[in-house]
Amino acid sequence: MPLDPSFVGRTYPPETTYEVGRAKIAEFADAIGDDNPLYRDIEAAKGAGYADVIAPPTFLTIINIRAINAVAEDPDLGLDYDRMVHGDQKFVHHRPACAGDRLQVTVHIDDVFVRAGNDFLSVHADVATDGGQPVCTTYAQLVVRGERS
């Protein structure tokens, strides 16, 4: 079933608040084999001008994918979630995410189109603190493979 173009411009408000933890940042850095001290050493992070340890540039995938999936699973949108793949992803950082940040994600549908038998869904998400300070804007394109591909 093709995606409904009337969904362009729709906004999905935050469902939860995610508190960035020092241990989660260290766990994520370990998983990508990254030993940068600014991810683990509070004094090093403060010395570099940050409030606390900072998160790697792709760390916010933790809350970004969850928020995008909530949109993708919207039954009204009619997307075949089992056939969905991630086409592209971009993070625009207004500042690095830091331990202690309480973050909320608002997802916007930017475009819906069909090309070569596949459905494409373009979204962006505003990641901000619960006090309204912008932290990151993420952009993603999701592709729903057609029945034949």
Binding site: I32, G33, D34, L38, I54, P57, T58, H86, Y139
Partner: peptide
């Protein structure tokens, strides 16, 4: 993320990355 390490290892301070995007 591994590709990002090439950039952040070189910079030293990962907070200097203002944008990072890829196609899969």
């Amino acid at each position: 993320a591994l590709g990002g390490r090439v950039v952040t290892d070189w910079l030293g301070d990962p907070g200097r990355v203002v944008e990072y995007g890829v196609r899969f």
